[in-house]
Amino acid sequence: MARKLLDAQSMSPLLSLTSTTSSRATSKLSPDQVETRLRQKRSLAYIEALTKLDAGGHIQTQESINALLAAIQMELPEVAVECWPAGYVAKCHLGKPYEVHSLDRAGNIISHYKAGQSLPGGMERARGLAEHGGYAFIEVYSDKLIAVASNGDISLVKG
């Protein structure tokens, strides 16, 4: 029987692992510094890792979750886990009727959404930006959205 990979209990050891490695970093970085760090250009490796993940299709495996967390850890090593993106939204290239898909750190890792289907967990507000097509993906945070272009440039939208 398949193990349930993504419920809270199985996530927390993973999260606590990453939080111990970056706990030294959290005490160093103030909210301003976190924002400065998040405002820096993203590396091409990170963008590639993320776009490769969801190009793989609807597969929810341990490897893909680990790959996602590793990609974030490598890109933002000094940033604490609680300041990481809560999810990612991007334009869906599978074609009609799918419009956008999302990657969620805690929950369903990859979901594709059709017109009229709302994204959960506050990610619906990123839909317009994702559908525009001008950005590789949108990082969704609790208080902001960061739109990442394919060359790594970022744009920040508060709220």
């Binding site: 959205l145 739109a147 970022i154 744009s155 939208v157």
Partner: peptide, 12 residues
């Protein structure tokens, strides 16, 4: 400018 552009696009 990139922030304004993104915010405009998000408000469509």
């Amino acid at each position: 400018h990139s922030d304004i552009t993104a915010s405009t696009r998000a408000s469509v």
